[in-house]
Design a protein around this nucleic acid. Structure first.
Lengths: 258, 258
DNA sequence: CGGTTCCTTGATAACGATCAAAGGCCGTGG
DNA sequence: CCACGGCCTTTGATCGTTATCAAGGAACCG
């Protein structure tokens, strides 16, 4: 029913940047080596990975792959941020997840049947290494632990997708926004100077995309932010967010108090 | 945040039925042998599976495992229907998926960390075989194709969970209900006698659970059904549903016509 | 500097949740 | 087997939330 490759914005590739890596990236010394799924591989396998991978720079708004495209490789993010959108036949879309340094994109399509079911758009300039299907296939056969690692990862995604579904149907936009801010702060937040839970964060995404992460409209998001600001929970200035008291945000999530 | 093992109804086990199988079930001759994940295994492995599995009968409303429980085995459904609910700290829950003959339940928890994130409740009397972790572990190590099969299955679940999320935030209850009826009809529908897409179905679930599948309330579901009936799209009589014209239902899903 | 896209605010309407109550079905226990 | 109680289902009334339409202003890019 929900038909692929439709409603996908035609931004396709503004200036498809050349495949010249920022510098000769090396998997053996990659800063993300211990974060990626690849971390369990033996040095020998990593050396093969290093030979297989094709590094490349991607500017903001570049579409790495689009929903409906045939699978063409794994993308290991060395730096930057990539948003993955799922879009329906009428063009409505939600931001399903953010990919950041150390994560690998595109394995869902590899394992599920060879067609991407999300559109990956770069939102903060990124360098990524493309990994071929042949390499993945070969390494899966040789290193059972890699399959195991992907099994855990996919199972974890199923769990979090189910939680997202429940949040979507049971929680208000305001509460969902608080959830989202708290989880973004874990990754993008900087502890502030003041005493109690003062946190500052540079939002990685624009409002429009933040709304898409909540499964709501930009108008509603703007209103909800205004409301939160009026209550003194947060201060927004463009993409800069200040949370004076993290505890107060957490209290939003617990309907029952003392 | 969403804390496990809370709000789970205390029905826990009305008369925990004895572990006597309906008859000596045999994996080698199981009617579902070709449907289950196990279908790719060699006869030798199936023989081991047959020795490992513990068959048992489960009456309706029996809780097979609850959200928050430690993982205690895989459950291969030989017959019957089992509903899996995900529940949040406030007791709100949604029906995440239905398990039916040939499917295996509980592998998400096995792969994701050993804790069930759904409650499995029998909704149509079932017989299921419990499969131990040791067996699964051993067989995964021996048969790489099994891991591969689970990878596809989990990846497919991620895809469908993402679609569900989008439906939830973009589609009305009415349209979601039509989607659900159409998909249930694929499994539970019987082609009727009349000419054009006349279909009859015995609903496997009660209204309450149907509402939980849509992420809405029973009251809203009742109203939506009444509305659909008034439009002549369906006739409901208890758990019996008649769709006079399947085409008309399909047209509900396509906003744009000629 | 011009155009476009993004963000915000306002007004309005539709949708779905909630509270309340009545009728029906079912399983249980007498 | 029947009677009882409880749960499920339906309908009504109302309210809150969120989408939608519209417009002004700000930021960004070429």
């Amino acid at each position: 029913m929900i038909n692929a490759r439709q409603g996908v914005p035609p931004v396709y590739s503004r200036r498809a940047d050349s495949s010249v890596p920022r510098s000769g990236l090396n998997c053996l010394t990659c800063q993300n080596r211990n974060k990626a799924e690849w971390c369990g591989l033996a040095d020998e396998e990593i050396r093969l990975l290093n030979k297989d991978k094709r590094p490349r720079f991607y500017p903001p708004n570049h579409i790495v792959f689009a929903q409906g495209d045939a699978w063409d490789g794994l993308y290991c993010i060395e730096a930057g941020t990539v948003a993955m959108f799922h879009t329906d036949a009428e063009g409505r879309s939600i931001l399903v997840r953010l990919g950041h340094a150390g994560q690998t994109m595109g394995y869902q399509a590899f394992f599920s049947g060879g067609v991407h079911n999300v559109t990956a758009r770069v939102i903060q300039a990124a360098t990524m290494c493309r990994i071929s299907g042949e390499f993945l296939e070969r390494t899966l056969a040789r290193s059972p632990s890699l399959a195991r690692r992907y099994l855990s990862r996919l199972a974890g995604e199923v769990v979090s997708a189910e939680e997202a579904l429940l949040r979507q149907s049971a929680l208000s936009v305001r509460v969902r926004l608080v959830h989202l801010l708290l989880s973004l702060m874990e990754r993008f937040g900087q502890a502030g100077d003041e005493a109690h839970g003062h946190v500052v964060m540079a939002l990685p995404v624009a409002r429009k995309d933040l709304a898409a992460m909540l499964g709501t409209r930009p108008e509603t998001l703007a209103r909800t932010i205004a409301e939160l600001r009026a209550d003194g929970m947060v201060r927004f200035d463009g993409r800069c967010v200040v949370v004076p008291n993290e505890r107060a945000l957490l209290d939003e999530l617990e309907p029952m108090s003392a």
